[in-house]
């Protein structure tokens, strides 16, 4: 039942999660993830047929906001946290579609 995590899987998850692991980290990550999945596979012992997946723990519904503008302009304060700002905008490396 042991989960063997391949290099490709670690590579793929790295793309999804935007994480770049060193060779050393990759070896550790493969082992850790394999161990965790082995452990998680314990859930397969449970018969959950017909059980509704519970995404929300309480049956609370319909929480809304009215369509009224109340927010002002806080951009100056917020932009102070940005690593790089130009023309009141957040700067990122050149991005082409």
């Amino acid at each position: 039942m042991a989960n063997i995590i391949s290099d490709e899987t670690i590579e793929y998850v790295g793309i999804l999660a935007k994480l770049e692991l060193s060779e050393e980290e990759k070896i550790r990550a493969k082992k850790d993830m394999g161990d965790m999945l082995d452990y998680i596979d314990k859930l397969n012992e449970l018969d959950t047929a017909g059980v509704e997946p519970m995404s929300h723990v309480f049956p609370v519904n319909n929480v809304f906001r009215e369509d009224i503008v109340v927010n002002g302009d806080d951009s100056e304060q917020m932009l102070k946290n940005a690593p790089e700002v130009k023309d009141k905008s957040y700067v990122v490396p050149r991005t082409v579609d």
């Binding site: 929480v63 809304f64 009224i68 503008v69 927010n71 302009d73 806080d74 951009s75 009141k88």
Partner: peptide, 29 residues
């Protein structure tokens, strides 16, 4: 509750929620 109005200088219609600030939470219109 930020305005959807067109125009306006960059990022002047923003708040912690629509700029993804940590700890902010969405509430549905």
């Amino acid at each position: 509750s930020c305005s959807t109005a067109f125009g306006g200088a960059p990022n002047t219609h923003t708040c912690p929620v629509c700029t993804g600030m940590p700890g902010s939470l969405p509430v549905l219109n």
